[in-house]
């Protein structure tokens, strides 16, 4: 009714073509956005530094006399040459201050006395043999060599010694199959404990987990998951 035939068909066709080109270009722009990942691009991941190799170290933090002998470490073994300084057949004197605390001679200043609470265990000859300083002694008089101290420690720490012998205390390395003695090694007491101060010192922990795109400020208080 109010329809009138197109006055300029060419003009209308041009408009249509323009629109089509517009749509096509629009699509192409979207396609480019998709392929270049410009749309909703995720924040790049933060670099996570590789963990320090010291945390991957499997050797124990202490070395024992047996280790020094095995490694033929002459410098370290010199410390065990007691009669280089001490006089033979003469028990070295032990001095105490007025409060009954042991006075460590300056030649042995590297020794920190901390075995047992309240400074009660303050007599060197509880473990060292005053008759022969190159050996140790159990209170019942048995002589113990420096390269095999567990029986000495076990003379007081019975249950721990029992656990150690069974493999529940300390660390065994190598094979879980203990059929063949050559396949595994058992750490000795002094590999982990300083005999003069056996409590294992605190240490720096290895870095914790880095959450994916975690905010460092909220990281520390982040929940478990």
């Amino acid at each position: 009714m109010n329809y009138s035939p197109p006055s300029a068909p060419n003009e209308k066709a041009a408009r249509t073509n323009l629109m089509l080109v517009g749509i096509a270009v629009g699509f192409l722009v979207f396609a480019a956005l998709f392929t270049k990942n410009l749309w909703g691009r995720v924040e790049p991941r933060k670099e996570i530094p590789l963990v320090d190799k010291k945390f991957l170290e499997t050797t124990p933090w202490r070395k024992t006399y047996a280790d020094f002998v095995k490694a033929k470490d002459k410098d370290a073994l010199e410390d065990y040459d007691c009669y280089g300084c001490h006089e033979k057949n003469k028990a070295p004197p032990i001095r105490y201050d007025k409060a009954g605390k042991i006075l460590i001679p300056k030649e042995h200043s590297d020794i920190v006395m901390g075995h047992g609470s309240h400074d009660r265990n303050n007599l060197c000859f509880n473990c060292h043999n005053e008759q022969n300083l190159t050996t140790l002694q159990v209170r019942d008089g048995r002589e113990v060599k420096f390269d095999n101290i567990p029986p000495l420690c076990g003379s007081c720490h019975g249950p721990t010694y029992r656990d150690w012998e069974a493999g529940a205390h300390g660390r065994i390395s190598g094979s879980w199959n203990h059929a063949n003695e050559a396949d595994f090694t058992r750490l000795s007491c002094a590999n982990c404990h300083n005999p003069h101060a056996p409590k294992i010192p605190t240490r720096e922990p290895a870095p914790g987990p880095h959450l994916l795109r975690a905010n460092p400020e909220t990281h520390a208080t982040e929940a478990t998951h």
């Binding site: 991957l56 170290e57 499997t58 124990p60 933090w61 493999g167 529940a168 205390h169 300390g170 660390r171 065994i172 390395s173 190598g174 094979s175 879980w176 199959n177 396949d183 750490l187 982990c192 294992i200 240490r203």
Partner: peptide, 19 residues
């Protein structure tokens, strides 16, 4: 026949593994 890596590195011997 060997122990797991986590056990071999434990500095306090808290980890125990076996048959």
């Amino acid at each position: 026949g060997r122990y797991p890596a986590c056990l071999e590195v434990c500095p306090v011997g808290a980890r125990k593994f076996g048959n």
